[in-house]
Computed example of a mutant assay.
Amino acid sequence: MAQIVVEVGKDSAAVLDRSLAELGIGEYVSQVARSVVGHETSGLVSILKPVALEQDPLAVITCVVPIDRAQTVAAHIAKSLDLATPGQGTMKVYSVSVGTPSEPEDPIDAETVPSSTASSVLLLDNVAEIVSIVQRGEGTSMSSFALNLGQSVPSVTFGIGMGLREKLNLIRITFPRDKEIVRITVNADEAQDVFDQLVDVGRLDEPGKGFIYLSPIKRALPNTLLFRGSQRHAATMEQVIQAIDSMQGTASWRQKRIATVLSGGSRRKYLQDMDEIEVRIADGHSQQLVLAAMPAGAAGATISRARLVRVHGSERTGAGVEILYIIVPASVTHRILTALEDAGLWADKLNGGVTVRPVQKACTYLS
């Protein structure tokens, strides 16, 4: 199966909703996030601070479709939202395994999928995603550094960490629960350098600072409008880059040598061969799943709030859900999925769902 994630400004959320309806997609998850972009200042302020940061609200929509229809579905959504134009949003397509209590149903109606757009929008390959889970308040600084690397516009969502407190049965502990999840789409050829620099900037290999991991993306249309300001030419640099990306079909051509000054890169320990288990469950039921997953091999989880939307013709129903992100060694994934099932993941009216995708490497404090 393929998981499609679309990040757009809230003003475009209605257009995205109509596009999903045209595709006959009957179920999707909606989350609130923010993007961080640079803005060219003016006047006296520009002397001391030529670029300031702006944060815009985002709607993040996630749906799962059969892998053989992912290109057509993604292209239709991209065309509806004009995602090929820098500044309109980001789309990512992941290859995932889907856990269900029975055989998964086809979530879209084949007759409703427009075939004419399948080849009209070219999504990039050779891309990857770096996800940093940091203490609340650190997401903006991580995003600012990512912008300066010239990859794509980061998105930031809020979350709550669970694990250490529950394991130690402590009410108070020095590590705050509130987290920010920073996601950035990068050129796969530069992913290692970007990863190491983000570890250094966030000091993510130090106690209590956070967690970072790198995952493959099957296809993507990243938002490359990193900075806003006056336009002095017929086309912006972002539009030129987007045009070349489309002609090349990949972002590999713009690989550049990133100056890397690592404080501990040569001796840094990485976690390899991991999985990201993304679990959906009704509001108020996430803790029981985390507590069940930990004895099976999970160190903890990061939990975000979301809304599950189901479409029945012209009617839409919504329910509050929690999304758990659990990063574990691939060798224990099956054991954790079994523990989640035993803990009631598939119970009636809990809106349970699971996707699993590979994590190439991760880094955190290792004692």
Rank of each mutant, 00 (worst) to 15 (best):
L123F: 04
T72E: 14
S35R: 15
P50Y: 10
A191I: 03
P50Q: 13
C63R: 11
N223P: 05
S46R: 15
Y94W: 09
L271Y: 03
N223G: 05
R177P: 00
Y213P: 00
P114M: 05
A319W: 03
K256N: 08
S102H: 13
V134T: 04
D17W: 02
F227M: 11
P66V: 11
A330M: 12
L168K: 13
T174N: 12
V29R: 13
L44G: 15
E315Q: 15
R267K: 14
R335K: 14
R177E: 06
A259W: 09
A78Q: 06
A306L: 06
V8A: 09
S143L: 05
L48H: 10
S143C: 08
I108C: 10
I133E: 08
D245P: 00
S30R: 15
E180R: 10
A259Y: 12
S155M: 06
D68H: 13
M274G: 01
P222D: 02
P57R: 14
K167F: 07
V199P: 00
D196V: 13
P207H: 09
V45F: 06
H312C: 01
G87K: 07
D200K: 12
R307K: 12
S132K: 01
G284L: 06
D189T: 10
V290D: 01
G99Y: 03
G24V: 03
D273Q: 12
L124S: 01
G313M: 10
S246Q: 12
G352R: 08
G284I: 06
V354K: 10
I108W: 01
A84F: 06
L289A: 04
F227E: 07
M1F: 04
V182A: 10
V6D: 04
P222A: 00
G300Q: 08
R257V: 09
H233I: 00
V321W: 03
D283Q: 14
R136N: 08
V73C: 11
I160G: 04
H285W: 04
D348R: 15
M142G: 00
A191M: 07
G265S: 02
L340A: 05
P114V: 08
V64C: 06
P295L: 08
L147H: 04
P216D: 03
L226M: 08
D283I: 07
